[in-house]
Design a protein around this nucleic acid. Structure first.
Lengths: 203, 203
DNA sequence: TAAGTTAATAAACATCTGTTCATTATATTT
DNA sequence: AAATATAATGAACAGATGTTTATTAACTTA
């Protein structure tokens, strides 16, 4: 667990770390929803009041764990730029590869969080449904590339749409659905015709 | 609220509907986390035991509300196919447009769920971070199309990657990250070079 | 419509939650 | 090293949770 801040009392760091470790431990065994705060502090060997001093509820603790992971994700994404002088426009590929490495590194955590219903499902549900729909399309028509992984492709396509929807929502529906459709077309066309991947120092 | 099943007792339907309406009402005013089950049944004018007869916890109730919405989403996606005889391979566009209509229809609900921390953030967080990263890239280099909405494009790209990651996780990391990167390249190349959109009976 | 089935209720119980407060222990600062 | 600050503790409280049990009310089907 990262947890390092100049102005942070060592006692806080210890307490928070203990709480995070306790939660992760418990999440291996049981559902996030079933875990009680009392249980967490029992495992962390801390007073219950200490929990509430730092977090209003369980979800917040999990959020902070995610912070640690996401920090590494950002670092991973940024990594390729350091080593490559020329960057191909619109090409997220080099970064994406690093992101895959990041996920692999934190595999345990990712499995835990994705499987758990801590997310309580909206994105998960929508994403899943869209994926099923895209999948059925992909299986109906055969693509020119036999090595294409249909599952991954379907997931890519459907979450991409979900991404647009979420952006739309967050912008307060200030666009018409027709505009959204137009943008989708633009985005799809935007995709790189020629992609050059940079493989910098694959450590 | 939909809620219609042949074998379902009318009392169940009434109770469940009341609970759903109560939760949605409360979610307008306060955070999902702050809402107690006692509060829900108080608004629904039902015994607390009735809640527990149908749902183990709040999240499950919200899940069922989502079911109703997602049913409509699927119907929306399927709609274009009914009216169009020839379907363009790899083209999710016609369906996607219908999905935008669906989201517009349920706008209130979508806003509620996306804003609320019922999701308790993983997808949200990851998606957001990836989006910021993609956004910075897009602003660094100017695209050929000035009408392209950068925010939407960034969200599209980042959630697409997230989609692949989630699929990867759910498959138990059975692929290498190199394979993942290869697939990403394939998927990007797969994108339709010429897109024909069918606009069937835009009701 | 009457009989049989099952949902909803009320009450009660142990446990968990969220909060407060005085006290003790452990940091940081000078 | 002493003074100061603040984190952690333990205890206590009202309210919420999750479960059970017997009773009443509402629905289904024959």
């Amino acid at each position: 667990m990262s947890m390092k801040s100049k102005t942070m009392d060592r006692r806080i760091i210890k307490s928070k770390t203990a709480l995070k470790e306790a939660l992760l431990l418990l999440m291996q065994k049981k559902d996030f929803n079933q875990i009680t705060i009392t249980e967490i502090v029992r495992h962390a060997d801390l007073n219950r009041g200490t929990f509430y001093k730092h977090y209003p509820f369980k979800e917040e603790l999990l959020d902070e764990i995610m912070d640690d992971v996401i920090k590494d994700l950002i670092a991973s994404y940024r990594e390729p730029y350091q080593n490559v002088s020329t960057f191909i426009l619109r090409d997220l590929t080099a970064s994406a590869i690093k992101i895959f490495h990041h996920v692999e590194k934190y595999a345990n955590f990712y499995v835990l969080v994705v499987k758990s219903n801590a997310l309580s499902g909206f994105y998960k549900r929508i994403g899943n449904e869209l994926k099923q729909l895209a999948l059925q399309d992909l299986s109906t028509y055969k693509t020119e590339d036999p090595d294409l992984n249909r599952e991954l492709s379907a997931s890519y396509q459907s979450y991409a749409i979900l991404g647009m929807i979420i952006e739309w929502i967050n912008q307060g529906f200030k666009y018409s659905s027709t505009y959204m459709a137009e943008q989708l077309l633009k985005i799809i066309h935007l995709n790189p015709v020629e992609v050059k991947v940079s493989h910098p120092t694959d450590k």
